[in-house]
């Protein structure tokens, strides 16, 4: 199958180094301490953060000098168009763990001992790159909750199809079976599905990193905009 035409256009009209449209919004769940909706094209993820709060299940606490980060990832049953079984499958568990580890590395947990932070993520609409969208949404929600972080953890995927590195794969490109890397910047979380030779991997990785930087910029803009709003409201 031809994923990139000889004219250099992908199936949806993007070029190899172009991301899908990003839409981000903060404060969508008023009950939560922090929340955000993050969209990359047709992929849409909602994140809600509770905490830092008292540890609810003491037995889970392993280290007393830092906060406990918990993460729950799920996909809405309507997210893919056909009916999904809700069961906690292996993919879901793995994703929860990856996101949790990424966010744990990013949050300054040692500042909040004896407390826990819950991150809830739900995919509302899936069209490839949900892993990245989740990390980005979680970052926004954490920032919204005012949880101290080392930096903005952002993520973007890139793949390699038709001998071309491609940024931000959508579902069709993702399911083509080529290699794809999800890169999270700051604490590195890269994850690969298929094998790539080292040189190609480096170009794909570099492309994904560029994508991450662009996303970080966009997230910063959203946060700054939000801060301005807060400032304005306080003044009012």
């Amino acid at each position: 199958m031809e994923y990139v035409s000889p004219e250099g256009l992908r199936l949806d009209g993007r070029r190899f180094n172009e991301m899908r449209q990003i839409v981000a919004e903060i404060g969508v769940v008023s009950k939560a301490d922090g929340s955000a909706v993050f969209e990359m094209g047709n992929t849409k993820v909602i994140a809600a953060v509770y905490g830092p709060r008292e540890i609810q299940n003491k037995s889970q606490q392993l280290k007393h000098d830092r906060a406990l980060v918990l993460c729950e990832y799920s996909m809405a049953q309507f997210s893919t168009g056909d009916r999904r079984r809700q069961k906690q499958d292996r993919r879901t568990t793995e994703l929860s763990l990856v996101i949790r580890q990424t966010m744990e590395a990013c949050i300054l947990t040692e500042l909040m001992p004896h407390s826990q932070i819950d991150i809830f993520l739900q995919v509302l609409q899936a069209d490839g790159g949900t892993r990245s969208a989740c990390i980005n949404a979680a970052t926004l929600a954490l920032a919204d909750a005012g949880i101290p972080m080392r930096d903005l953890a952002v993520s973007c995927s890139a793949g390699y199809l038709n001998s071309t590195p491609l940024l931000d794969l959508n579902y069709v490109e993702d399911s083509a079976g080529g290699a794809d890397v999800t890169v999270g910047i700051l604490p590195k979380t890269d994850k690969m599905d298929a094998k790539l030779p080292m040189e190609t991997f480096e170009t794909v990785f570099a492309l994904a990193s560029e994508g991450c930087k662009a996303i970080a910029e966009r997230i910063r803009e959203v946060l700054e905009e939000n801060t301005k709003q807060l400032e304005y409201r306080r003044a009012a």
């Binding site: 199936l11 949806d12 094209g41 047709n42 168009g81 056909d82």
Partner: peptide, 13 residues
Amino acid sequence: GRIQKQVREVYLR
């Protein structure tokens, strides 16, 4: 054999 609705983005240039 099932019929499925598909939504694809098109970025106009």
